[in-house]
Amino acid sequence: MRFTRRSQLRAFTPLAAAALLACPAAPAASAAEARPEASSSDTCTLGVRAAAHPGRDRVVLDLGEGTLPEVSSGTSTTGSYHTPADTTQYMAVRAASYLFLKLFLAHFYDSAGNPTYKSPDVQPFGLPAVKGVQVVGGFEGRAEFALSLGPSTRYSAFTQPNRVVIGVYR
């Protein structure tokens, strides 16, 4: 079944509005940087950063206040993924393998519709194991990312307050 842009907007606009209501903005602090607050069941995604460490590269997904999202992952060698409209897309940063991450009950916008995610949607890195990170979806309470990797797909992931950390080993 093919979707036109108009039918996609009609179908997805109410769902996007509901997702926006689920992630209210934090009150502004005078001396500290304001971080978006989330309800007790979800959080806002703020950005991504990466760095090389001995034996591994580390990617950090920074999150707003709230409950840590549930994280699921999968690997691929093709770099293809499906959008909510069920179209096939390919990663912008080509690599030998890919790690796809889904954060459930996470959003890219606050309740006023303001973007909370400040990093580029496609962010190349010149690291030995991590070649780039890309936003591949955000729909119905999911924030989805993909990491473009070198030949290694051995990784570990853990959560800490306000972030998800992924170590990709060389």
Rank of each mutant, 00 (worst) to 15 (best):
A129W: 02
T87V: 07
L105Q: 14
V122P: 00
V59R: 00
P69K: 07
K131A: 09
F125E: 03
G55C: 13
L147G: 02
A25C: 12
A26M: 10
A85Y: 09
A17Q: 15
L99C: 04
L147V: 03
T159S: 05
S39I: 12
K102Y: 12
V122H: 01
G150V: 02
R10L: 11
T83M: 09
V133G: 04
S41I: 13
T78H: 09
R49V: 07
A52S: 07
V93W: 00
L9F: 12
S41R: 12
L20Q: 12
Q160I: 07
Y155D: 00
G47H: 06
L9D: 13
G74E: 04
M1W: 10
G141H: 02
V135F: 11
A32Q: 08
D121M: 14
Y117I: 05
A19T: 10
S30M: 13
A26P: 06
L68H: 11
F104H: 11
S148E: 01
R163P: 02
V133I: 14
L61V: 09
A17L: 14
A129E: 05
N162V: 14
D42L: 07
E144Y: 05
L20W: 12
S119W: 07
A25T: 10
S7R: 05
L20M: 15
K102R: 15
P27C: 08
F104T: 08
L21K: 06
A51N: 15
A112R: 13
G47T: 03
